[in-house]
Simulated assay, not measured.
Amino acid sequence: MLLNVENLNIDIATPNGSLAAVQDVSFRVSKGETLCIVGESGCGKSITALSLLGLLPKVAKRTARQMTFDGLDMQSMSKAELRALRGDRLSMIFQEPMTALNPLHTVGRQLSDVYRAHRKASRREAKERAIYLLKQVGISNAAQRLNQYPHELSGGLRQRVVIAMALMCEPELIVADEPTTALDVTIQAELLRLLIDLQKSFGMGMILITHDLGLVSRIADRVIVMYAGQVVEAAPAAELFTKPSHPYTRALLGSVPDPSYPRMKPLPSIPGTVPSLVSRMEGCHFFDRCPLACDACRQPIQLATIDKDHEARCIRVGKGEIRRKVVA
C-alpha cells in the first residue's frame, strides 16, 4: 500500500466558528492505481489533497488516526522531512497553472530547481532532465522554452509545464487537483490523455480530483464520492457506475448530459446547494436536497458495507433498492 489515510479531519477557524471542512475521510492508494475523488465544489476534495502535502493554511487543523506514505508516518514528519518527500516521491498538479508557476523566474529555472533540490544534480543534468520532460509532455522547441517566463506561454503550455514539474523526480504518487479546469475543452481532453499515458509510462499511483464523470468512468480504478466534507460512497469504478447506492451519487450520474435527452427539456440537476460546514452537522448531510429523506436520516449515519470494497453512507443501504432516477 503506497498511501493509507484513515479518519482524516480538517477544521478551519473562521470568524463564525470552526468549519469542519473534512470529516472522517479514509482512503488508500496502491502503486499504479488511480483513485478519483468526485463531488461538487465545496465538498472538501481540494483541501483533502492539500492536506496530503502539508499545504494547508495556518488556520486549518489536521488530525487523522493514520496517515502513512509507503509506511512512513506523515503526521510525525518534521517540516524538513515533509519537504524532502514533497516534490520527490509525492507530487501535485494544481488547478491553476498561472498561480502554480512563479512569474519572476523562467520555466527552466523552476523545473531545474525542483530536480537539483531533491537529486543534488548539476545544472547541466537538471537542464537535460527538464528538456526531456518538456518533450514528454508534448512541448516542442523544449530547449528554447526553458528561457521563457510563464506569462509568455498559453494556458495549455503552462499546464504542461506544471505537469512536467510534478514529474521531474519521478514521483511514486501524483495528486492532480482538477488539472484542466481553466482550459478549453479541446486542450482538456488532450492533456488528460497525456496525463494518463504518463502515469502508465512512469508507473505512478494517482489521485485525480475532477468533476468529469465521463473521464472517471474511463480511467479510475476506485472512486470516492464526497459531499459536504464526508465520503458518502466509495467503490471500484465499474461497480460505482453500474450499482450506485447513495442518492447523491445517483443524482450526480443523473446530471450528466445525455445526447439522447430531449432538446427542449431542461437538463437534470440537483436542487439546492452544499450546506455550510461551520459546526458539525448531525445526520445525513444530503438531507435537505434528497427526495428520499425521512426523519430517520436526521440521526448520525455511518458508512455501511454493501460488498467487499463498496460502502455508502445511507440508511437505505441494504434495505431495498434506491430507485435509479433520484433527480427527475
Results as ranks from 00 to 15, higher is better:
D184N: 08
H151D: 13
R119I: 07
K135G: 09
A166T: 02
V175D: 01
Q148N: 15
G214V: 10
T181V: 03
H151P: 11
A121R: 00
L111F: 07
L101N: 03
M206D: 02
S217E: 15
V216I: 10
A166M: 01
T181M: 02
L153E: 09
G205C: 00
Y115W: 14
H118M: 07
L111N: 01
S201P: 04
Q148F: 15
R222G: 02
T186H: 10
S154Y: 14
S112L: 05
R124P: 07
S140M: 11
R222K: 10
S201T: 11
E178S: 03
Q136M: 09
L157T: 11
S140C: 00
A182M: 11
Y132S: 15
F202Q: 03
I131N: 04
R145L: 13
A117Q: 12
Y227N: 07
G155I: 15
M206Q: 06
S217M: 10
E172P: 00
R124W: 13
V225W: 08
L133N: 03
T186G: 07
D113I: 13
A166E: 02
L191M: 07
D212R: 06
R109C: 13
M165V: 09
A220P: 08
R123P: 07
R218V: 14
Q199C: 11
H151L: 12
L198T: 00
K135I: 10
G205K: 00
A182R: 08
V223N: 00
P171D: 12
K200H: 08
F202I: 12
L183H: 00
V162M: 04
H118S: 11
L195R: 05
R116K: 13
R119K: 14
L153Y: 11
T181R: 04
A189S: 06
D212T: 04
L173M: 05
Y227C: 07
I209W: 06
I224H: 02
I174Q: 08
L111C: 11
Q148P: 12
G155S: 13
L104G: 11
L198D: 02
I174K: 02
L133M: 09
R193Y: 09
I224T: 11
R116E: 10
I163G: 00
L173Y: 03
L215G: 01
T99A: 09
P179I: 00
N141H: 15
A166R: 04
K120H: 12
L213D: 03
I219H: 09
V162K: 00
M165A: 14
G205A: 07
D221A: 05
A117E: 15
A117K: 14
E172W: 03
R109E: 15
L134D: 00
H105Q: 11
P103Y: 05
G203D: 00
